Simulated assay, not measured.
Amino acid sequence: MKVGNIVILANLGELKVYEAMPRDLEAEAGLKPQNVKLDLINDKNYIASHQKLHEVLSDQAGRFKGGSQGRGSFSRGSIGEKHTIENEIEEDVIREIADDISKIITEKNVPVYLAMPDMISKRVTERMSPQAKEKVLKTVEKDLMKTDKTELIALF
């Protein structure tokens, strides 16, 4: 890792962006570009992934409570809400993470290191822009959100 590189950590709940800054004068002068420290430059929380399902849904039946009660026939109609809501929320958050990462990479226009849990890594990278994918030097498929930033340098 060299001065100016970006490290992006993401999971379904949060995104952190670090920039590699010189630790000493030798690194700043370019003599030892590997002597870096990471400074947090951006932090974003994804509220939708933190919400509980009972906060999003109600326990009321659907719009057509009694169904069709025509002459001689009775159908139940809708008795609940969408069962795929968890997957839809997750996909929306993944799409938002991919958009945010793409914006950061194209804005900074420097080499980037990514770290995301393996369950979302492939889905996020598929949704990133082609220009952003070109700038990614290495992707680590682990949730490193709680890892100390001094340990992150060794991983990349």
Results as ranks from 00 to 15, higher is better:
M1V: 10
I6K: 06
L9G: 06
A10E: 05
G13M: 03
G13S: 02
L15M: 11
K16S: 10
V17H: 04
Y18G: 08
E19T: 00
L25I: 15
E28T: 11
L31E: 13
Q34W: 14
N35L: 01
I41V: 11
I41R: 05
I41L: 06
I41S: 00
N45F: 09
K52I: 09
H54I: 14
E55L: 04
V56G: 05
D59E: 12
D59A: 11
Q60P: 04
R63K: 10
F64E: 08
Q69K: 14
G70E: 03
S75M: 11
I79Q: 15
K82F: 05
H83N: 14
T84Q: 14
E86I: 12
N87V: 07
N87M: 12
E88T: 14
E88C: 09
E91T: 13
D92T: 12
V93W: 00
E96Q: 12
E96T: 14
A98M: 05
D99M: 09
I105G: 02
T106Y: 01
V110D: 01
Y113S: 00
P117H: 07
D118Q: 08
D118S: 12
I120E: 00
K122M: 07
R123E: 10
V124H: 04
T125A: 03
K138A: 01
L144K: 06
M145S: 02
T147A: 00
D148I: 13
E151H: 11
L152K: 03
L152V: 03
A154T: 15
L155K: 11
F156P: 01
F156Y: 09
